[in-house]
Amino acid sequence: MRSLGIYGDHAQTVVRRLSALRQLSVEAVAALEQAVLEGLLRAGPGEDLIAEGEPLDSVRIVLSGWAFRHKTLEDGRRQIVNFIFPGETCDAHVYLLSALDHTISAVTSVVYAEIRRAPFEKLLASDRTLAEAFMCETLLNNAIQREWVINLGRRVALERVAHLFCEIHERLRPVGLVDGNSCALPVTQMDLADATGLSVVHLNRTIQELRASGLIVLRERTLTIPDLDALKSAALYSPSYLEIYRRG
């Protein structure tokens, strides 16, 4: 991994994401952009941003590309426990822990910011709106994690996959990564299987069922949802868990 220099567009991604949670002050935006641009790094597909057990002394924010959190059992079985999309933080207060209890890896090429603990705490102390935005993001991540537990524990296969597609679409929207009813889906069927707790064979059958029902179109690593309301209905999906924060 190496420093990239100044890429202003990447800083805007996290500004847009946090601004959807709290109305940031002008001063907060300027301070955040500066902190992000001073710590730009890159990871290639499959590369770890940080591995389970590594010590923690900084906050990582994904600015472009996709990453995911995962844990792997001793026999090699892997569970993806969440995806991390552009503008999202890999836990704003994770440096309070002694070591990470899971691994964060890049799905695609990823540009991310790494901000050391002292500058990050100074950043939060400098502006209330920024501190509240990062706290809202932490609470939102908790809500997403609870929904993933329900997905794995109670929804049937078709509902699980449909729900994941709905969530991906809705989480990409605030940073302008949805084009009409389409968005990128740069993951493999193995990734989707590991995220939904299904075998690859079962996952493939489920995707074919969603396709045959006209609920999704998958082509060239792009997900198109012809009727989002219909897919939400099939998934028993409610977006309320993504809207738990109060702006202002």
Rank of each mutant, 00 (worst) to 15 (best):
L236S: 13
T188P: 01
I84R: 05
S58F: 06
G87C: 08
R69Q: 12
A67D: 07
L130Q: 14
G8S: 15
R116E: 14
G53R: 11
I168N: 01
D229C: 01
I216T: 06
V36Q: 07
P186N: 03
T13A: 14
G8E: 14
V94T: 00
A35T: 13
V81S: 12
L236P: 04
R173D: 05
L37I: 11
D48K: 08
A118H: 08
P174K: 01
L140G: 05
N204Q: 12
L139H: 14
L41N: 08
R219C: 11
G8T: 11
I216P: 02
A11C: 04
N181Y: 04
S109F: 05
I216C: 00
D191A: 04
V201N: 14
D127T: 15
A212V: 12
L210D: 02
V178K: 13
S64N: 08
L40S: 05
V161N: 04
S3G: 14
R22E: 11
R154A: 08
P186K: 06
H93V: 02
F165K: 05
D48T: 10
G197E: 06
P239S: 01
D101I: 07
K122R: 15
L140E: 01
Q208Y: 04
C136P: 00
N204F: 06
D101T: 09
L24E: 02
L37H: 01
F85W: 10
A234N: 00
F120D: 09
L158A: 13
A133T: 08
H70W: 07
D9V: 05
I216F: 00
S199R: 12
V187D: 03
A99W: 02
Q145K: 15
L242P: 03
K122F: 00
G44S: 12
L32R: 10
A30P: 00
E38C: 08
R173F: 00
L18Y: 10
I115E: 01
T188Y: 01
F68W: 09
L130E: 12
T138Y: 14
A11Y: 01
T224H: 04
S64W: 04
L139I: 09
D127Q: 13
R221D: 05
I50H: 03
N141C: 10
H10K: 14
G197H: 03
S98L: 07
V178P: 10
S98Q: 10
S64R: 13
N141H: 15
V81E: 04
G153D: 07
V156I: 12
R160S: 03
A234Y: 04
I115N: 05
R128Q: 14
L192S: 01
L63F: 07
N141F: 12
D229W: 01
